[in-house]
Simulated assay, not measured.
Amino acid sequence: MYNEIDSDFITHSQVPMASLARQMIEQAWDLYCQLDAQGNLIYASGRFNEVIGCVPEQVEQIIEAVDSDFRLDVYKLFVHTLQTKTSSKLEFRAKGAGEVHLWMECTAIPFCDEKGEIKEIAFALQDRTRHKNQENRLLAMALHDPLTGLPNRRLFKEQLNQLLQQAKRTNRTFALLYVDIDDFKIINDTMGHDIGDAFLQEFVSRIQGCLREVDMFARMGGDEFTILLPAVDCQDHVDAIAQRILACVDRKWEVQELSFRSTVSMGITMYRSDQIDATQMMKEVDIALYQVKGKGRNHYQFYDHDLPIDTR
């Protein structure tokens, strides 16, 4: 939750800081405040006004700025510092001036007297928002397809495994669809990759219009996509969604002043209580998709669970 820092605590003789010393400390961190051993606010630097919209006079004003999900962690950081008399760090989210969301890294520093008893605790904070946003952007790039913005194969597999674990606990069924664009290579080869990319982006927009917010639409690569439909009541429900997808794709496409038609083929499988793992489900939709392709494409096929499947 927080990281202890290997450093000696500061003695109480250092607590009454001269003005120059306090200015040096405040320049080292974006925000700085001191609390007594009971948690009462003693001092808060003037930059609080710039960052959170006010200079707090009570510790409650600081706590109110901390996101509710992290308030207990901040309290535990204070208690941990009291008990161990060591410095520790904690990263948390807070509400800044103008309702912006900030990420702050807080270093708790104990101030002790000659007997080693804590008299005050300082919270020295650095704004980590830019760094955190960069981390989130890098993570999003690692988990999403750059062309369409959809979850990629890695994120899809994580979500499928989570749904499987949830379904095993709740016995609530879900559906997996494997969607393949028929003859997408012809579009790329005859119209160019720019048209192909623009078509894929428009394709994603159309399919998303057929799905609920809780459904997951992912790009596996090229012209292959997957859809996870959690909490579907029955196969009829999945039938209706599959039919909507076929109908929306079958409408004429207008991409960069070019008009053409396209279709999709889909393999579908439903979760059942004896489902082994994600690998088996992927084999099932692949078999169902292969059957659709063999029958002329532009349709969907549910996997027949009575058929044997090689799970090796």
Score class of each variant (00 low, 15 high):
Glu99Cys: 14
Lys115Pro: 00
Asn161Asp: 11
Asp183Ile: 09
Gly221Thr: 13
Asp250Cys: 06
Ala142Asp: 08
Asp183Cys: 14
Asp306Ser: 12
Asp306Asn: 11
Val249Lys: 00
Val214Asp: 13
Arg272Gly: 12
Arg154Lys: 05
Asn49Phe: 15
Glu99Ile: 10
Cys33Ser: 15
Glu224Gly: 08
Val204Asn: 07
Glu284Gln: 15
Met104Arg: 00
Ile187Val: 08
Ile25His: 02
His101Leu: 14
Ile62Tyr: 08
Leu147Gln: 04
Leu143Ala: 12
Glu91Thr: 09
Val232Lys: 01
Gln291Trp: 11
Ile207Ala: 08
Ser7Ile: 07
Cys33Tyr: 11
Arg47Trp: 14
Asp197Ala: 10
Leu211Val: 02
Arg312Thr: 13
Gln243Thr: 06
Thr226Met: 02
Ala278Ile: 11
Gly294Trp: 06
Glu91Gly: 03
Gly39Asn: 04
Asp36Pro: 00
Ile276Gly: 12
Leu177Glu: 04
Leu211Pro: 04
Cys112Met: 03
Gln162Asp: 05
Val59Asn: 15
Gln58Ile: 10
Lys132Pro: 05
Ser87Asn: 03
Glu117Gln: 11
Ala21Asn: 15
Gln201Arg: 10
Gly39Leu: 06
Cys248Gly: 02
Val100Gly: 12
Asp233Ile: 10
Gln201Lys: 15
Met281Ile: 06
Leu77Val: 06
Leu177Ile: 05
Ile227Phe: 02
Leu147Asp: 04
Ser13Thr: 02
Thr81Pro: 04
Ala122Gly: 06
Gln23Cys: 03
Met141Tyr: 12
Ser19Pro: 00
Gln301Leu: 02
Ala198Phe: 01
Gly53Asp: 02
Gln159Asp: 07
Glu4Phe: 08
Lys85Leu: 01
Phe302Val: 13
Gly39Glu: 00
Ser262Thr: 11
Phe260Gly: 05
Phe184Tyr: 13
Gly149Leu: 05
Pro56Phe: 04
His144Gly: 09
Phe217Gln: 14
Leu246Ser: 03
Gly149Arg: 09
Ile287Gly: 00
Gln166Lys: 05
Asn3Asp: 02
Ala122Val: 01
Leu20Arg: 04
Phe48Trp: 14
Gly267Met: 06
Val55Trp: 08
Asp30Val: 13
Val66Ala: 12
His144Phe: 14
Met270Lys: 06
Asp239Thr: 05
Val255Thr: 00
Ala18Trp: 01
Ile25Trp: 01
Tyr303Ile: 15
Gln301Gly: 06
Pro151Glu: 03
Asp223Val: 03
Val255Phe: 01
Asn3Trp: 04
Thr129Arg: 14
Gln14Gly: 07
Phe48Tyr: 15
Glu99Ala: 15
Arg312Met: 09
